[in-house]
Amino acid sequence: MSTLHYDIAHVLDGSVLLLGFLLLYQRRMFGLINIFAFQALGLALAAAWQAHVHGESHLYATALIALSVKAGIIPYALRRLIIHFGIHRTIDTALGIGPSLVAGATLVALSVMLVLPVTADSAALTREKLALALSTVLIGLLMMITRRNAITQVIGFMALENGLILAAVGVQGMPLVVEMGIAFEVMVAFIIFGIFFFHIRDRFESLDLQYLESHRGERR
């Protein structure tokens, strides 16, 4: 593989991780959704590039799903949801922006230190892709933990899923990538429809998950 191919793949994978950091940095709901859409776009490009370079044509399907569903339909649905239910446009954080960024950087260091020694025998590109993907997964997890709102949790979950698809795409010749991607999309779709149909806002007064915390005990 020529260096140019290699570099382009790196830039695309790196952009997914970078956009993961921007998700942590964002304080506004609509901004968050836009950044998520861009992250999905980055994932789509990375998958398409992998498909092109390695001639794995089924990855074009993965790229197409990421582009249409995650960069298109889901951000649109989330925007409608926020307008429809009049959800707060600013994000309530459990851990401040600064500390979350520091925690995010620590997680990236951790995953690089974890993945690179372990995969010493694998192809260079696979190792680095995997380190970037694991970082994205962990940042998505961090976002789910440190952001209090149900919508931001869903976005955190989808960022995590972007990282997973990136990993699956990066491992050469992995079967069933497309099927797994679809299984995830169905799950995310159900979560979002759950918010729609169950009117979680109506029932919980707010999408703030602190209200869920009060349910930790028993029914009286």
Binding site: M144, Q153, F157, L160, M187, G194, I200, R203, L212, H215
Partner: peptide, 13 residues
Amino acid sequence: IKAAWKYFILCGV
């Protein structure tokens, strides 16, 4: 609904 949501999020992760 709260129980289902909690189940969804935790098991999703």
